[in-house]
Deep mutational scan, measured.
Amino acid sequence: DAPDEFRDPLMDTLMTDPVRLPSGTIMDRSIILRHLLNSPTDPFNRQTLTESMLEPVPELKEQIQAWMR
């Protein structure tokens, strides 16, 4: 099983494109984008959230890719 820090906190699946929300939570980009289609909010604190506020986490993405090899 993947380490917890590699798993999306909402869907508990392996992240492939991790992004940091303004709240500091790291999620998979595809999952948070799907959530934003229904509700333009951070799913953990209900603060306003837009796609432009998502910050890529390239170092975590590299760690996940290395773990998958």
Rank of each mutant, 00 (worst) to 15 (best):
Glu55Ile: 15
Asp4Arg: 15
Met68Phe: 11
Ile31Leu: 05
Asn38Cys: 13
Thr41Lys: 08
Thr48Cys: 14
Met53Lys: 05
Arg34Cys: 13
Asp4Glu: 14
Ile32Cys: 07
Leu37Pro: 00
His35Ala: 06
Met15Trp: 02
Leu10Cys: 12
Glu55Gln: 13
Thr25Gln: 12
Ser52His: 12
Ser30Pro: 12
Leu36Tyr: 03
Leu60Val: 05
Pro9Ala: 12
Leu33Trp: 05
Pro9Asp: 05
Pro56Ser: 11
Leu49Cys: 07
Thr48Ala: 14
Leu49Asp: 03
Ser39Phe: 10
Arg34Phe: 11
Pro18Gln: 04
Leu54Ser: 00
His35Glu: 07
Arg34Trp: 13
Phe6Asp: 03
Gln47Glu: 14
Arg46Ile: 07
Val57Ser: 05
Pro43Ala: 04
Leu49Trp: 04
Leu60Cys: 06
Ala2Thr: 12
Pro18Phe: 03
Ala66Gly: 08
Ile64Cys: 05
Phe6Lys: 02
Pro9Ile: 08
Pro18Cys: 07
Gln63Val: 10
Leu33Lys: 07
Val57Met: 15
Asp42Val: 01
Lys61Gln: 10
Gln65Cys: 12
Glu59Ser: 11
Ile32Lys: 00
Pro40Phe: 09
Asp42Pro: 02
Asp12Met: 14
Ala2Tyr: 15
Met27Asn: 02
Val57Thr: 05
Ile31Lys: 03
Met53Asn: 06
Lys61Leu: 13
Asp8Met: 03
Arg34Glu: 12
Glu59Lys: 11
Thr13Ala: 06
Pro58Cys: 08
Leu33Asp: 05
Asp4Met: 15
Val19Asp: 00
Asp17His: 06
Thr13Ser: 10
Pro22Asp: 01
Thr50Cys: 09
Pro3Asp: 02
Met15Val: 01
Ser52Ile: 10
Lys61Ala: 10
Asp12Lys: 15
Thr13Met: 08
Val19Asn: 02
Asp12Trp: 15
Met27Thr: 04
Leu60His: 03
Arg20Trp: 06
Ile64Thr: 00
Ser52Glu: 13
Ser39His: 10
Asp1His: 14
Val57Gly: 03
Leu37Gly: 10
Ser23Gln: 03
Pro40Val: 07
Ile31Pro: 02
Pro40Gly: 11
Val19Arg: 00
Ala66Thr: 11
His35Trp: 15
Thr50Ser: 12
Ala66Arg: 13
Met15Lys: 01
Asp17Leu: 04
Glu5Cys: 13
Asp17Met: 05
Trp67Cys: 05
Asn45Asp: 10
Thr16Lys: 12
Thr50Ile: 10
Glu5Ser: 12
Leu49Tyr: 02
Leu10Glu: 04
Thr50Asp: 14
Phe44Tyr: 07
Leu21His: 00
Leu37Asp: 10
Lys61Met: 09
Pro40Met: 10
Pro40Ala: 14
Leu14Cys: 08
Thr41Pro: 02
Glu51Asp: 08
Asp17Glu: 08
Ile31His: 09
Pro9Glu: 04
Arg69Asn: 14
Ser39Arg: 06
Pro22Thr: 02
Pro3Glu: 04
Ser30Arg: 12
Leu54Glu: 00
Leu21Gln: 01
Ile32His: 00
Arg69Pro: 06
Arg46Asn: 15
Thr41Cys: 11
Pro3Gly: 05
Pro9Arg: 07
Thr48Arg: 14
Leu14Thr: 06
Met11Asp: 10
Leu10His: 04
Ile31Met: 06
Pro56Val: 07
His35Arg: 05
Thr41Gly: 05
Glu62Thr: 10
Ser23Arg: 02
Arg46Asp: 14
Met11Gly: 09
Glu59Ile: 10
Leu10Ala: 04
Leu49Gln: 00
Thr25His: 14
Pro9Lys: 07
Ser23Pro: 01
Arg34Met: 14
Asp28Phe: 09
Arg29His: 07
Arg29Ile: 07
Gln65Glu: 15
Asp28Tyr: 03
Gln47Met: 12
Leu54Trp: 05
Met27Ser: 03
Ile64Ser: 00
Pro43Ile: 02
Met11Cys: 15
Thr13Asn: 07
Asp1Trp: 14
Leu36Gln: 00
Arg7Gln: 06
His35Ile: 09
Leu14His: 04
Leu10Phe: 09
Ser39Thr: 12
Leu54Tyr: 02
Trp67Leu: 04
Pro56Thr: 08
Ser52Pro: 08
Pro3Ile: 05
Ser52Phe: 11
Thr13Gln: 08
Met27Tyr: 05
Leu60Tyr: 03
His35Met: 11
Pro3Ser: 05
Val57Lys: 03
Asp4Lys: 15
Arg29Leu: 11
Pro58Lys: 09
Leu36Ile: 09
Pro56Leu: 08
Asn45His: 08
Ser23Gly: 08
Leu33Gly: 04
Asn38Ile: 14
Asp8Cys: 10
Ser52Gly: 12
Pro58Asp: 09
Leu37His: 11
Leu60Ile: 06
Arg7Glu: 02
Arg69Tyr: 11
Leu36Lys: 00
Glu55Thr: 13
Arg69Ser: 13
Pro43Lys: 01
Glu59Gln: 12
Val19Ser: 01
Ile64Tyr: 03
Thr16Gly: 07
Pro40Glu: 11
Pro9Thr: 04
Pro18Tyr: 02
Ser23Cys: 07
Ser52Trp: 12
Ile32Trp: 03
Arg34Gly: 11
Pro9His: 06
Thr41Leu: 09
Asp42Cys: 07
Phe44Cys: 07
Ala66Ser: 11
Ile31Asn: 09
Gln47Asp: 12
Ala2Met: 15
Asp42Glu: 07
Arg7Val: 06
Val19Glu: 00
Pro40Arg: 12
Asn45Cys: 08
Asp8Ala: 02
Pro3Asn: 05
Arg7Cys: 10
Glu55Tyr: 08
Ile32Pro: 00
Ser23His: 05
Thr16Met: 13
Leu10Met: 10
Pro9Tyr: 06
Thr41Gln: 08
Thr25Phe: 15
Pro9Val: 04
Pro58Ala: 09
Ile26Gly: 01
Met27Arg: 01
Pro56Ile: 06
Lys61Arg: 13
Ser23Leu: 01
Asp1Ala: 13
Ser52Val: 10
Pro56Lys: 06
Glu62Ile: 11
Pro40His: 12
Pro40Cys: 10
Leu21Gly: 00
Asp4Ala: 15
Pro22Gly: 03
